[in-house]
Nucleic acid binder design. Structure first.
Length: 278
DNA sequence: GGTGCGATCGCCT
DNA sequence: GGCGATCGCACCG
């Protein structure tokens, strides 16, 4: 209570930032005090989860990118194993004006056809000759959301095996938070293949998205909005805040401390205004 | 911790 | 023919 009544001041903003970041670590059991490296996720429960249908995906791109945060991506392998990961980082690619989008200028090709299909359609494309990225079509012509990072919830050992298969023999064992902290890493860990392109996330039997009744949805105050990764060459579109991640989450691929500090400053200011201390 | 670089090939011009 | 919505590793501090 009293800690929330801070006025803005740099050193305190710093320390509060540290506090904000260590808490999710503890929640995840990913701190150093867990030598096994395994965790009993507070998010995984026996309660029935709800598969999300077309109406969830049928919203504007930026809204969908934020709405994805906290949802659970499920991949069912042919042997019946279910791999689960919570979405903690996304990017919005708007199409049309968005110069960084594969569908910039409304350009439609064989590769990006899925971006123009109905909301919920999966867009998988190869990058750098050796990796894949997974997107999901949203409302809006050619618009889609890139899934960048997941928090592994179940099937971690299988994920580790799938990731190891693509790495050099004898490479070190990956930590849990390293399994899905990147767009191509999550495709490897969940065995998302090229053939998933143009499939429907709302109805497919091998991959789907679930809400999680146990966990609260990421609230606006905990979502960092910042620039997208790997699109530096696209002028003003490179700097627009179209990447979204759960603040303080250890599985996010790239942090932007400045954006987080600015968030904290404006939050502190709002609290101060509410308190009448400014 | 951070920075720089090479790998590798499908897609688009 | 050039480049990319990436990653892992070597190297530095």
């Amino acid at each position: 209570m009293t800690t929330r009544k801070r006025k803005k001041s740099l050193p305190q903003a710093e320390s509060s930032s540290v506090q904000t970041h260590s808490e999710p670590l503890k929640r995840l059991g990913l701190s150093d005090t867990n030598p096994a490296g395994h965790l009993h996720s507070p998010y995984f429960s026996t309660r029935e989860s709800v598969r999300l249908s077309y109406s969830f995906f049928d919203q504007p791109c930026v809204d969908l990118a934020k709405a994805f945060l906290g949802k659970v991506l499920v991949r069912k392998l042919t042997d019946g194993t279910e791999l689960r990961g919570r979405v903690v980082e996304t990017e919005a690619y708007l199409g049309g004006e968005d110069k960084a989008s594969h569908s910039a200028g409304g350009k439609r090709t064989e590769r990006n056809t899925a971006m123009f299909m109905k909301p919920g359609t999966i867009y998988v494309y190869p990058i750098y000759g050796i990796y894949l990225c997974m997107n999901v079509s949203s409302q809006g012509e050619g618009a889609a959301v890139l899934l960048r990072s997941l928090e592994p919830l179940s099937g971690q050992d299988v994920m580790r095996g799938l990731r190891a298969a693509k790495r050099k023999a004898g490479a070190r064992i990956l930590k849990e938070k390293e399994l899905c902290n990147g767009p191509s890493k999550l495709c490897q860990a969940l065995d998302i293949q090229r053939c998933f392109d143009r499939r429907d996330l709302a109805t497919d039997s091998e991959v789907w998205l679930e809400g999680d009744p146990e966990a609260e949805t990421a609230s606006a105050g905990e979502v960092v909005s910042t620039s997208r990764i790997g699109v530096e060459s696209h002028g003003e579109w490179a700097t627009k805040p179209l990447r979204f991640y759960m603040r303080g989450h250890p599985c996010v691929s790239v942090l932007n401390r400045d954006a987080e500090r600015q968030m904290q400053s404006s939050t502190d200011l709002q609290i101060a205004e509410t308190d009448g201390t400014v």
